[in-house]
Protein backbone atom coordinates (compact mmCIF):
# COMPACT_ATOMS: atom_id res chain seq x y z
CA UNK A 1 0.00 0.00 0.00
CA UNK A 2 1.24 3.50 -0.87
CA UNK A 3 0.51 5.92 1.92
CA UNK A 4 0.99 9.66 1.90
CA UNK A 5 0.77 11.59 5.14
CA UNK A 6 0.70 15.35 5.68
CA UNK A 7 2.57 16.05 2.47
CA UNK A 8 3.28 19.74 2.00
CA UNK A 9 5.27 21.66 -0.56
CA UNK A 10 5.65 25.41 -0.56
CA UNK A 11 7.05 27.51 -3.38
CA UNK A 12 7.71 30.86 -1.78
CA UNK A 13 4.63 31.38 0.32
CA UNK A 14 2.34 29.53 -2.08
CA UNK A 15 1.34 26.00 -1.11
CA UNK A 16 1.61 23.78 -4.18
CA UNK A 17 0.70 20.81 -2.02
CA UNK A 18 -0.96 21.11 1.38
CA UNK A 19 -2.04 18.51 3.91
CA UNK A 20 -2.10 15.66 1.41
CA UNK A 21 -3.21 12.48 3.15
CA UNK A 22 -4.15 9.48 1.06
CA UNK A 23 -3.55 5.78 0.72
CA UNK A 24 -3.61 3.73 -2.44
CA UNK A 25 -4.04 -0.03 -2.65
CA UNK A 26 -2.11 -2.33 -5.01
CA UNK A 27 -4.16 -3.45 -7.99
CA UNK A 28 -6.25 -0.27 -8.02
CA UNK A 29 -6.16 2.56 -10.49
CA UNK A 30 -6.66 5.88 -8.79
CA UNK A 31 -7.36 8.93 -10.85
CA UNK A 32 -5.97 12.18 -9.48
CA UNK A 33 -8.45 14.63 -10.96
CA UNK A 34 -7.95 18.37 -10.93
CA UNK A 35 -7.82 21.40 -13.13
CA UNK A 36 -4.56 22.74 -14.54
CA UNK A 37 -2.44 24.02 -11.66
CA UNK A 38 -4.27 21.96 -9.06
CA UNK A 39 -1.05 20.17 -8.03
CA UNK A 40 -1.43 16.83 -9.84
CA UNK A 41 1.98 16.88 -11.51
CA UNK A 42 3.60 18.26 -8.36
CA UNK A 43 2.14 15.37 -6.36
CA UNK A 44 3.36 12.85 -8.95
CA UNK A 45 6.83 14.40 -8.99
CA UNK A 46 6.97 14.40 -5.20
CA UNK A 47 6.08 10.69 -5.13
CA UNK A 48 8.73 10.00 -7.79
CA UNK A 49 11.30 12.04 -5.87
CA UNK A 50 11.81 14.59 -8.60
CA UNK A 51 10.96 17.37 -6.14
CA UNK A 52 11.39 17.33 -2.39
CA UNK A 53 8.36 18.12 -0.23
CA UNK A 54 8.83 20.47 2.71
CA UNK A 55 7.17 18.07 5.08
CA UNK A 56 5.16 14.88 5.21
CA UNK A 57 5.92 11.28 4.39
CA UNK A 58 5.54 8.86 1.52
CA UNK A 59 5.50 5.22 2.58
CA UNK A 60 5.30 2.04 0.56
CA UNK A 61 4.22 -0.94 2.65
CA UNK A 62 5.32 0.97 5.74
CA UNK A 63 8.76 1.89 4.43
CA UNK A 64 9.38 5.62 4.07
CA UNK A 65 10.96 6.91 0.88
CA UNK A 66 10.63 10.62 1.31
CA UNK A 67 14.42 11.09 1.48
CA UNK A 68 15.33 8.53 -1.18
CA UNK A 69 16.69 9.91 -4.46
CA UNK A 70 14.41 9.24 -7.44
CA UNK A 71 16.64 6.57 -8.96
CA UNK A 72 16.34 4.48 -5.82
CA UNK A 73 12.54 4.62 -5.64
CA UNK A 74 10.53 1.67 -6.97
CA UNK A 75 8.51 3.94 -9.22
CA UNK A 76 7.74 4.01 -12.93
CA UNK A 77 6.37 7.15 -14.53
CA UNK A 78 4.91 8.32 -17.81
CA UNK A 79 4.69 12.08 -18.27
CA UNK A 80 2.73 14.41 -20.52
CA UNK A 81 5.75 14.90 -22.77
CA UNK A 82 6.87 11.97 -24.89
CA UNK A 83 10.02 11.28 -22.91
CA UNK A 84 12.43 8.77 -24.38
CA UNK A 85 16.16 8.41 -24.98
CA UNK A 86 16.83 9.90 -28.42
CA UNK A 87 20.18 8.10 -28.82
CA UNK A 88 18.75 4.62 -28.24
CA UNK A 89 16.51 2.54 -30.44
CA UNK A 90 13.05 1.61 -29.24
CA UNK A 91 14.15 -1.77 -27.85
CA UNK A 92 17.03 -0.26 -25.88
CA UNK A 93 14.77 2.52 -24.66
CA UNK A 94 12.42 0.01 -23.08
CA UNK A 95 15.24 -2.21 -21.84
CA UNK A 96 16.97 0.74 -20.14
CA UNK A 97 15.40 0.39 -16.65
CA UNK A 98 15.97 -3.36 -16.72
CA UNK A 99 19.64 -3.00 -17.62
CA UNK A 100 20.02 -0.40 -14.87
CA UNK A 101 18.43 -2.88 -12.45
CA UNK A 102 21.11 -5.43 -13.36
CA UNK A 103 19.11 -7.66 -15.72
CA UNK A 104 21.33 -9.35 -18.32
CA UNK A 105 21.25 -7.51 -21.64
CA UNK A 106 19.79 -10.40 -23.65
CA UNK A 107 17.07 -10.99 -21.09
CA UNK A 108 16.33 -7.26 -20.87
CA UNK A 109 16.04 -7.05 -24.66
CA UNK A 110 13.66 -10.01 -24.75
CA UNK A 111 11.48 -8.52 -22.02
CA UNK A 112 11.56 -5.14 -23.75
CA UNK A 113 10.38 -6.72 -27.01
CA UNK A 114 7.57 -8.49 -25.15
CA UNK A 115 6.50 -5.19 -23.57
CA UNK A 116 6.63 -3.48 -26.95
CA UNK A 117 4.46 -6.22 -28.42
CA UNK A 118 1.90 -5.52 -25.68
CA UNK A 119 1.69 -1.88 -26.75
CA UNK A 120 1.56 -2.76 -30.44
CA UNK A 121 5.07 -1.73 -31.42
CA UNK A 122 6.63 -5.13 -32.09
CA UNK A 123 7.58 -4.11 -35.61
CA UNK A 124 9.38 -0.95 -34.57
CA UNK A 125 11.96 -2.17 -32.07
CA UNK A 126 14.95 -1.09 -34.15
CA UNK A 127 13.73 2.43 -34.86
CA UNK A 128 14.76 5.57 -33.04
CA UNK A 129 12.03 7.44 -31.11
CA UNK A 130 12.45 10.36 -33.51
CA UNK A 131 11.23 8.10 -36.33
CA UNK A 132 7.93 7.45 -34.52
CA UNK A 133 4.72 9.46 -34.30
CA UNK A 134 3.79 11.17 -31.04
CA UNK A 135 1.38 8.39 -30.14
CA UNK A 136 3.98 5.72 -30.84
CA UNK A 137 6.58 7.58 -28.78
CA UNK A 138 4.18 7.65 -25.86
CA UNK A 139 3.57 3.92 -26.28
CA UNK A 140 7.33 3.41 -25.99
CA UNK A 141 7.29 5.41 -22.75
CA UNK A 142 4.37 3.30 -21.47
CA UNK A 143 6.16 0.07 -22.39
CA UNK A 144 9.26 1.32 -20.56
CA UNK A 145 7.16 2.08 -17.48
CA UNK A 146 5.39 -1.30 -17.58
CA UNK A 147 8.52 -3.38 -18.14
CA UNK A 148 10.04 -2.08 -14.93
CA UNK A 149 7.33 -3.85 -12.92
CA UNK A 150 7.57 -1.16 -10.26
CA UNK A 151 5.10 -1.40 -7.38
CA UNK A 152 4.05 2.20 -8.07
CA UNK A 153 3.14 3.40 -11.56
CA UNK A 154 2.57 7.13 -12.09
CA UNK A 155 0.78 8.24 -15.24
CA UNK A 156 0.81 12.02 -15.47
CA UNK A 157 -1.77 12.93 -18.13
CA UNK A 158 -0.03 10.60 -20.58
CA UNK A 159 -2.45 11.22 -23.43
CA UNK A 160 -2.98 14.95 -23.07
CA UNK A 161 -0.79 15.74 -26.06
CA UNK A 162 -2.50 13.28 -28.38
CA UNK A 163 -5.46 13.98 -30.62
CA UNK A 164 -8.96 13.05 -29.47
CA UNK A 165 -9.36 9.79 -31.39
CA UNK A 166 -5.94 8.50 -30.38
CA UNK A 167 -6.61 9.48 -26.77
CA UNK A 168 -9.84 7.49 -26.70
CA UNK A 169 -8.18 4.43 -28.22
CA UNK A 170 -5.13 4.59 -25.93
CA UNK A 171 -7.26 5.01 -22.85
CA UNK A 172 -9.03 1.73 -23.55
CA UNK A 173 -5.73 -0.01 -24.37
CA UNK A 174 -4.19 1.26 -21.16
CA UNK A 175 -7.05 -0.09 -19.04
CA UNK A 176 -6.50 -3.49 -20.68
CA UNK A 177 -2.74 -3.30 -20.10
CA UNK A 178 -3.15 -2.34 -16.47
CA UNK A 179 -5.72 -5.05 -15.78
CA UNK A 180 -2.92 -7.58 -15.37
CA UNK A 181 -0.79 -5.34 -13.12
CA UNK A 182 -2.54 -6.64 -10.01
CA UNK A 183 0.24 -5.83 -7.57
CA UNK A 184 0.77 -2.28 -8.73
CA UNK A 185 -0.50 0.98 -7.30
CA UNK A 186 -1.46 3.01 -10.35
CA UNK A 187 -2.01 6.77 -10.09
CA UNK A 188 -3.39 8.47 -13.17
CA UNK A 189 -3.46 12.27 -13.26
CA UNK A 190 -6.11 13.85 -15.41
CA UNK A 191 -8.02 17.07 -15.97
CA UNK A 192 -10.83 15.22 -17.71
CA UNK A 193 -13.68 14.01 -15.43
CA UNK A 194 -14.94 11.66 -18.13
CA UNK A 195 -11.54 9.99 -18.24
CA UNK A 196 -11.56 9.69 -14.46
CA UNK A 197 -15.05 8.21 -14.42
CA UNK A 198 -14.19 5.79 -17.19
CA UNK A 199 -10.83 4.57 -15.91
CA UNK A 200 -10.46 4.88 -12.17
CA UNK A 201 -11.31 2.40 -9.44
CA UNK A 202 -10.90 5.32 -7.10
CA UNK A 203 -10.85 9.05 -7.62
CA UNK A 204 -9.04 11.79 -5.72
CA UNK A 205 -10.08 15.35 -6.41
CA UNK A 206 -7.32 17.93 -6.13
CA UNK A 207 -7.78 21.70 -6.08
CA UNK A 208 -5.23 24.35 -5.10
CA UNK A 209 -2.84 21.66 -3.88
CA UNK A 210 -5.36 20.09 -1.53
CA UNK A 211 -7.42 16.92 -1.69
CA UNK A 212 -11.03 18.11 -1.71
CA UNK A 213 -12.67 14.69 -1.94
CA UNK A 214 -11.92 11.05 -2.66
CA UNK A 215 -13.93 7.90 -3.17
CA UNK A 216 -15.42 5.80 -5.93
CA UNK A 217 -15.89 7.72 -9.19
CA UNK A 218 -19.65 7.18 -9.21
CA UNK A 219 -20.04 8.34 -5.61
CA UNK A 220 -17.85 11.42 -6.06
CA UNK A 221 -19.70 12.38 -9.23
CA UNK A 222 -23.14 11.85 -7.69
CA UNK A 223 -22.34 13.42 -4.32
CA UNK A 224 -19.61 16.04 -4.54
CA UNK A 225 -18.83 17.24 -1.04
CA UNK A 226 -18.30 20.86 -1.97
CA UNK A 227 -18.85 23.36 -4.75
CA UNK A 228 -15.13 23.07 -5.58
CA UNK A 229 -15.39 19.28 -5.84
CA UNK A 230 -18.54 19.62 -7.96
CA UNK A 231 -16.74 22.04 -10.22
CA UNK A 232 -13.73 19.72 -10.66
CA UNK A 233 -15.72 16.55 -11.25
CA UNK A 234 -18.07 18.05 -13.83
CA UNK A 235 -17.09 18.88 -17.36
CA UNK A 236 -18.28 21.40 -18.34
CA UNK A 237 -18.01 22.83 -14.82
CA UNK A 238 -21.15 22.93 -12.76
CA UNK A 239 -23.26 26.12 -13.00
CA UNK A 240 -23.38 27.95 -9.63
CA UNK A 241 -26.76 29.65 -9.15
CA UNK A 242 -27.16 31.63 -5.91
CA UNK A 243 -30.48 31.59 -4.12
CA UNK A 244 -31.97 32.67 -0.85
CA UNK A 245 -33.84 30.23 1.36
CA UNK A 246 -36.72 31.54 3.32
CA UNK A 247 -39.23 28.71 3.57
CA UNK A 248 -38.77 28.06 -0.13
CA UNK A 249 -35.73 28.47 -2.33
CA UNK A 250 -36.04 31.85 -4.02
CA UNK A 251 -34.11 32.10 -7.30
CA UNK A 252 -35.37 35.58 -8.11
CA UNK A 253 -36.44 35.87 -11.73
CA UNK A 254 -35.81 32.15 -12.22
CA UNK A 255 -38.65 31.32 -9.86
CA UNK A 256 -38.95 29.38 -6.66
CA UNK A 257 -38.30 25.79 -5.70
CA UNK A 258 -39.53 23.81 -2.72
CA UNK A 259 -36.38 22.81 -0.80
CA UNK A 260 -36.19 22.05 2.89
CA UNK A 261 -33.31 24.01 4.33
CA UNK A 262 -32.63 26.45 7.18
CA UNK A 263 -32.99 30.06 6.12
CA UNK A 264 -29.94 31.68 4.55
CA UNK A 265 -27.89 32.19 1.42
CA UNK A 266 -27.04 29.13 -0.69
CA UNK A 267 -25.71 28.15 -4.06
CA UNK A 268 -27.34 25.61 -6.34
CA UNK A 269 -24.90 23.66 -8.48
CA UNK A 270 -26.68 22.82 -11.70
CA UNK A 271 -25.02 20.52 -14.21
CA UNK A 272 -24.86 21.81 -17.78
CA UNK A 273 -26.91 18.79 -18.87
CA UNK A 274 -29.73 19.96 -16.56
CA UNK A 275 -30.31 23.07 -18.63
CA UNK A 276 -32.44 22.49 -21.71
CA UNK A 277 -33.40 24.59 -24.71
CA UNK A 278 -37.09 25.35 -25.16
CA UNK A 279 -38.07 26.90 -21.84
CA UNK A 280 -39.55 30.11 -20.54
CA UNK A 281 -36.31 31.90 -19.56
CA UNK A 282 -34.84 34.06 -22.31
CA UNK A 283 -31.06 33.74 -22.28
CA UNK A 284 -28.55 35.42 -24.57
CA UNK A 285 -25.92 33.26 -26.30
CA UNK A 286 -22.34 34.39 -25.64
CA UNK A 287 -20.44 31.46 -27.15
CA UNK A 288 -21.13 28.13 -28.81
CA UNK A 289 -18.69 25.20 -28.65
CA UNK A 290 -19.34 22.10 -30.72
CA UNK A 291 -17.32 19.16 -29.37
CA UNK A 292 -17.86 16.00 -31.38
CA UNK A 293 -21.60 15.31 -31.24
CA UNK A 294 -22.23 17.68 -28.32
CA UNK A 295 -22.93 21.39 -28.16
CA UNK A 296 -21.95 23.57 -25.24
CA UNK A 297 -23.79 26.87 -25.33
CA UNK A 298 -22.58 29.62 -23.02
CA UNK A 299 -25.49 31.76 -21.91
CA UNK A 300 -26.12 34.95 -20.05
CA UNK A 301 -29.32 34.82 -18.02
CA UNK A 302 -30.34 37.50 -15.53
CA UNK A 303 -26.69 38.34 -14.87
CA UNK A 304 -25.71 34.69 -14.48
CA UNK A 305 -23.17 32.99 -16.76
CA UNK A 306 -24.44 29.48 -17.51
CA UNK A 307 -23.37 26.62 -19.74
CA UNK A 308 -25.96 24.40 -21.42
CA UNK A 309 -24.98 20.96 -22.73
CA UNK A 310 -26.94 19.37 -25.58
CA UNK A 311 -26.41 15.92 -27.10
CA UNK A 312 -26.67 17.22 -30.63
CA UNK A 313 -25.00 19.77 -32.84
CA UNK A 314 -26.85 23.07 -32.60
CA UNK A 315 -25.22 26.09 -34.18
CA UNK A 316 -26.10 29.37 -32.51
CA UNK A 317 -24.44 32.74 -32.90
CA UNK A 318 -23.35 35.07 -30.11
CA UNK A 319 -26.20 37.48 -29.43
CA UNK A 320 -28.95 34.99 -30.32
CA UNK A 321 -31.69 34.69 -27.75
CA UNK A 322 -32.78 31.22 -26.74
CA UNK A 323 -35.50 30.10 -24.38
CA UNK A 324 -34.13 27.72 -21.73
CA UNK A 325 -35.50 25.51 -19.00
CA UNK A 326 -33.52 24.90 -15.80
CA UNK A 327 -34.14 21.62 -13.96
CA UNK A 328 -33.57 23.27 -10.60
CA UNK A 329 -34.82 20.24 -8.69
CA UNK A 330 -31.83 18.25 -10.02
CA UNK A 331 -29.35 20.75 -8.61
CA UNK A 332 -26.92 20.19 -5.74
CA UNK A 333 -27.20 22.61 -2.83
CA UNK A 334 -24.11 24.15 -1.25
CA UNK A 335 -23.98 26.41 1.80
CA UNK A 336 -22.30 29.77 2.06
CA UNK A 337 -19.07 27.96 3.08
CA UNK A 338 -19.12 26.04 -0.21
CA UNK A 339 -19.84 22.72 1.51
CA UNK A 340 -22.73 20.48 0.52
CA UNK A 341 -25.99 21.34 2.33
CA UNK A 342 -29.34 19.66 2.63
CA UNK A 343 -28.00 16.15 2.08
Amino acid sequence: MLKITDLELLVGSVAHLAAINASFQPGTLTTILGRTGAGKTTLMRAIAGLIAPDRGQILLDGTGWTRLPPWKRPVAMVTQQFINYPHLNVRDNVAFPLVRAGVAKADAAARAEAALARVGLAAMVDRRPSALSGGQQQRVAIARALVKKAPVLLLDEPFVNLDYNLREAFRKDLVDLLAVETGTVVLYASTDPREALQMGDQIVLLADGRIVQSGSPRDVFANPASLTAASVVNDPPINPIPFHQNGVADFGALGQQAITLPSGAYTLGLRASDIRAGGPHQARVTLTEVTGSETLTHLSLNGLDLVMQEKSVVLRSPGDVVGVHLDLHKGLVFGADGQRAGV
Partner: peptide, 29 residues
Protein backbone atom coordinates in the same frame (compact mmCIF):
# COMPACT_ATOMS: atom_id res chain seq x y z
CA UNK B 1 21.11 18.51 -24.59
CA UNK B 2 17.39 18.04 -23.91
CA UNK B 3 16.30 17.68 -20.27
CA UNK B 4 13.78 14.91 -20.88
CA UNK B 5 16.21 11.96 -21.05
CA UNK B 6 17.61 13.03 -17.67
CA UNK B 7 14.14 12.94 -16.14
CA UNK B 8 13.61 9.50 -17.69
CA UNK B 9 16.99 8.27 -16.42
CA UNK B 10 16.19 9.33 -12.85
CA UNK B 11 12.88 7.46 -12.97
CA UNK B 12 14.49 4.46 -14.66
CA UNK B 13 16.93 3.96 -11.82
CA UNK B 14 20.08 5.60 -13.14
CA UNK B 15 22.12 7.57 -10.58
CA UNK B 16 24.43 10.45 -11.57
CA UNK B 17 27.38 8.27 -12.63
CA UNK B 18 25.24 5.83 -14.62
CA UNK B 19 23.37 8.75 -16.17
CA UNK B 20 26.67 10.20 -17.37
CA UNK B 21 27.76 6.97 -19.05
CA UNK B 22 24.31 6.00 -20.38
CA UNK B 23 22.87 9.38 -21.34
CA UNK B 24 25.31 12.30 -21.36
CA UNK B 25 28.34 10.58 -22.89
CA UNK B 26 26.50 8.82 -25.74
CA UNK B 27 24.41 11.89 -26.52
CA UNK B 28 27.61 13.90 -26.87
CA UNK B 29 29.14 11.26 -29.17
Amino acid sequence: LPNEPYLAAKIDGAGPVRTFFSVTFPMLG
